[in-house]
Design a binder for these strands. Structure first.
Length: 259
DNA sequence: GTTGAGCGTT
C-alpha cells in the first residue's frame, strides 16, 4: 500500500511513531522520507489512505528507530514547509504502539514543549458515518465486521467529543485564519456571483398558451403517443425515420412554426 | 479537477 516499502507493520519492537499532519494530499512517503531521514533513522513511513477513493488523508506516520531522533525530527520538521504546505510533526498518541510510548519515557522525557499548541480542539471526523453506513449495507463480509468492531471503541470516544463540539464551529477558525486570502478571493467570487446572479430572467413565453404539447392531454394524445412509441420501441423507429427521409421533425415542427 | 480536522496498515 502506501508504506515505505513493505507490506504491513515492519517491526514495532523499538520504534517510535510520529504523526505528520497538514501535509498535502499528494505528498507521498517517498517525499517525506528525505525530510525525516535527515534527522534520524527512519524505520517506516505510513500514509493512511481512504478506503473508497484511495487518496491520501492528509497525514502520515513516520516511525523512528530512536526516540531522541524522533524528538529531534519533531523539533526540526514541525512547522516546515513541505510541498508548499506547513506540516505538523508530533508524537503519535493513538496507535498500535501507543502503549509503548505512553508507558515509556517519551511522553515524560520529551514533552511537547514546542509551544505551538496547535489545533487542540478535535472537532469531528469525516469518515465513520458514511463509511460505517456503507459497510453496514454490505455487511455480507464477516471479514470487515471484525475490522469494524476493532475501531468501534475508538468511535465511541469520538462520539462523546463530538457532542461537546457543538458549541464551536470549524468555520470560525477558517474564516479568521484566511482573513486576508478570503478577502481577496471572496471579492472575486462575489463579483462573479453578482454578475451571474440574475435568476430573475424567466422570459415568460406567451406561446405557452398556444402550445399544443404542453397542455395536459389524455393518454390518447396524437403527437405525444407517437413520440412515446418512438422511445419505447426503438425497433420500430425505422418507421418514423423512413417517413422523415429528411433530417428534422416533420409535422410537429411544421405545425408549430407555421402557426 | 475538488477538500484541510485529525491519529495508522498486513
Amino acid at each position: 500500500m502506501s508504506h515505505f516499502g513493505r507490506s504491513g507493520p515492519p517491526d514495532i519492537k523499538d520504534t517510535f511513531s510520529l504523526l505528520v499532519l497538514n501535509i498535502t494530499f499528494r505528498t507521498t512517503a517517498d517525499d517525506l522520507f528525505p525530510f525525516f531521514d535527515k534527522y534520524g533513522k527512519v524505520v517506516d513511513i505510513f500514509i493512511p489512505r481512504d478506503r473508497r477513493t484511495g487518496e491520501s488523508r492528509g497525514f502520515a506516520f513516520v516511525r523512528y528507530k530512536y526516540a531522541d531522533e524522533a524528538q529531534k525530527a519533531v523539533d526540526r520538521l514541525d512547522g516546515r514547509i513541505v510541498d508548499g504546505r506547513e506540516i505538523t510533526v508530533q508524537f503519535a498518541k493513538y496507535g498500535p504502539n501507543a502503549e509503548r510510548i505512553h508507558k515509556g519515557r517519551i511522553a515524560e522525557t520529551f514533552p511537547r514543549s514546542r509551544g505551538r499548541s496547535r489545533s487542540h480542539s478535535p472537532r469531528r471526523r469525516y469518515r465513520d458515518d458514511s463509511r460505517d453506513r456503507d459497510y453496514r449495507r454490505r455487511s455480507r463480509s464477516r471479514s470487515y465486521d471484525r475490522y469494524e468492531s476493532d475501531r468501534y471503541r475508538g468511535r465511541e470516544r469520538d462520539y462523546r467529543r463530538r457532542s461537546r463540539s457543538r458549541s464551536a464551529s470549524p468555520d470560525y477558525r477558517r474564516g479568521r485564519s484566511r482573513g486576508r486570502y478570503d478577502d481577496g478571493r471572496r471579492n472575486l467570487s462575489r463579483s462573479r456571483s453578482i454578475d451571474s446572479a440574475s435568476p430573475t430572467r424567466h422570459t415568460p413565453s406567451p406561446k405557452r398558451s398556444l402550445s399544443p404539447h404542453v397542455t395536459p392531454s389524455p393518454p390518447r394524445g396524437g403527437s405525444q403517443d407517437r413520440r412515446s412509441r418512438e422511445e419505447r420501441s426503438p425497433s420500430q423507429s425505422i418507421s418514423p425515420r423512413g417517413r422523415s427521409a429528411g433530417s428534422r421533425s416533420p409535422s410537429l415542427h411544421k405545425s408549430d412554426a407555421d402557426d
